[in-house]
Simulated scan of single mutants.
Amino acid sequence: MTAALIHGIILAFGLILPLGAQNVFVFNQGASQPRFRGAVPVIITASLCDASLILLAVLGVSVIVLTVPILQTVIFSAGILFLLYMGWSIWKSDPASLSQKEAAMPTKKQILFAMSVSLLNPHAILDTIGVIGTSSLSYEGNEKIIFTASCILVSCLWFIGLAVAGRIVGNFDTEGKLLKTINKISAIMIWCVAIYLGIQLYNG
């Protein structure tokens, strides 16, 4: 059981550490919200989405995505559109007025964006299925439960940590200069992911 726990923790960290669109969005919300509680919706949404993908991978349900070509095309296309829109929204945002309530992204928009970068990210889905789903085959019974739970726990704690880090940056960057730069870089990164997905879709 200890081996399953350690395996799950290390594996989850390895998959979630790279600075992708999902991590960038959670960090930005932690930084741009006037209060930390304003970023709670994005933390919960991202955590639930990741937990769902992990559970589906372990249960083997999400393998259907890999066997139905039209589903892959739909997921890639929707993911590209959402990433392009998200990049544009982040690029246009003005963090200089963090004290104003309207500067923060509304809860509904947070949830929509968090779901898009979590569930409409083909790489996240394929990584979850290919790595976590495949690795879970090594365990049965309680060991599989521990392995799955450790992956989900790491994911939740990581998103909380990202939002806290963003909040710390937002607190000392009262004029929003650093956040504006971070937003520009984040938008470019997100657009690069969208372009990369577009190339993959075209070549596929």
Rank of each mutant, 00 (worst) to 15 (best):
I132C: 04
I129R: 10
S138C: 09
S155L: 02
I146D: 07
S135Y: 11
S118Q: 08
S136T: 05
H123E: 02
I152L: 09
F147V: 01
L120P: 12
T148C: 14
S136H: 07
L153S: 15
I129N: 07
V131R: 05
S135C: 09
I125E: 04
V117C: 10
S136C: 10
V131F: 14
S135W: 03
A124D: 01
I145S: 06
I146H: 06
L137D: 08
S136R: 02
A149V: 15
L137A: 14
D127V: 03
I132Q: 01
V154I: 14
I125M: 11
T148V: 04
S118R: 06
T148W: 01
C151E: 01
I145H: 03
L119P: 12
V154Y: 08
T148P: 00
S150R: 01
S136E: 04
S135A: 15
L120V: 06
V117K: 08
P122E: 04
K144H: 04
L126Q: 05
C156E: 03
A149I: 13
T134N: 11
S138Y: 14
G130E: 05
L119F: 13
N121S: 12
G133D: 01
E143R: 14
I146G: 07
N142D: 13
N121Q: 07
I129D: 07
D127T: 06
A149L: 15
V131L: 15
I129M: 13
I145Y: 05
S138I: 13
Y139T: 10
Y139R: 08
Y139Q: 08
I145P: 00
E140M: 11
V131D: 06
V117I: 13
A124R: 03
S138V: 12
P122C: 06
C151P: 00
H123F: 10
K144T: 05
S118L: 06
V117G: 10
G130N: 07
I152R: 02
P122H: 06
I129T: 08
Y139G: 11
G141V: 00
I152M: 13
S150H: 03
I125T: 03
I152F: 04
V117S: 12
E140S: 15
L120N: 11
L120K: 12
P122Y: 05
G130H: 07
I152N: 01
S135F: 13
C151Y: 00
F147N: 00
S155H: 00
K144Y: 03
D127P: 02
S136G: 08
S155K: 00
I146V: 15
N121R: 05
G141Q: 02
I146M: 14
I125G: 05
C151F: 02
S118G: 10
A124T: 04
T128L: 11
P122L: 04
A124Q: 03
G133P: 12
H123C: 01
V154C: 10
S150M: 11
H123V: 02
I146R: 07
S118I: 01
H123R: 07
V117Y: 08
G141E: 02
T128I: 08
